[in-house]
């Protein structure tokens, strides 16, 4: 009988401890998850469709449809963001080389008006596609808060790398190389 009682107590204690440990694990996991990025490295880049600015007529760009099978560098920027404007010439200088290798550069401007974007584009002779996220929907979907913010997306649509802040020419070159499709290597 005594043994039975002891066993009962062990079970009781184990159950209580398990419940408590469960609660603690739940608390820790949900808290750590909160800090996790919405679009993390290795995950699929969320699809989107935005109006292209530096093109004649009304045209939209769809990330997955228009760039299927290509590596994509997705750059969030704005005309009021100085470090963004500094890295734009680097992107322009590498664009022709990587376009041939199957890597696209796509810049998402979060400016309020197309006017300011167009002014900046025409003064800096940018030829890579630039789209306008006027409502901030794509910025929200990618959970971008600070500019510039850049995602390097593999040809299969997964995020290879995420960079917060400005890029140097060397780094940019290296990161673009990472997302060149296998067939072009």
């Amino acid at each position: 009988m005594a043994k039975n009682k002891k066993q009962k107590r062990l079970i009781f204690r184990s159950v209580i401890l398990l419940i408590l440990i469960g609660a603690v694990v739940f608390a820790l996991v949900t808290n750590l998850k909160k800090e996790e990025e919405v679009v993390a490295v290795g995950e699929q880049a969320p699809p989107f469709e935005l109006k292209q600015v530096n093109v004649d007529g009304e045209q939209t760009l769809n990330l997955h449809e228009d760039f299927e099978g290509k590596g994509v560098m997705l750059n969030f920027w704005a005309t009021y963001c100085d470090p963004c404007k500094e890295e734009m010439p680097y992107m322009q200088s590498l664009y022709p080389k990587y376009k041939e290798k199957g890597v696209e550069i796509l810049a998402v401007s979060v400016d309020a008006t197309e006017l300011v974007i167009n002014n900046w584009i025409s003064k800096n002779e940018l030829t890579f596609p630039i789209v306008h996220d006027q409502k901030g929907a794509v910025m929200d979907a990618y959970d971008v808060f600070n500019l510039p913010s850049t995602f390097f997306i593999n040809p299969d649509g997964t995020v290879e790398r995420k960079v917060d802040g400005a890029l140097t020419l060397d780094k940019l070159d290296g990161y673009l190389e990472e997302i060149v499709p296998e067939s072009e290597k």
Binding site: I16, A23, V24, L28, E35
Partner: peptide, 19 residues
């Protein structure tokens, strides 16, 4: 206040309270 060890400390108080 969101570090794992701080949360663990608070959680331990809860565990201690129950037991």
């Amino acid at each position: 206040y969101s570090s794992w060890w701080y949360m663990l400390l608070v959680a331990s108080i809860g565990v201690s309270l129950v037991i």
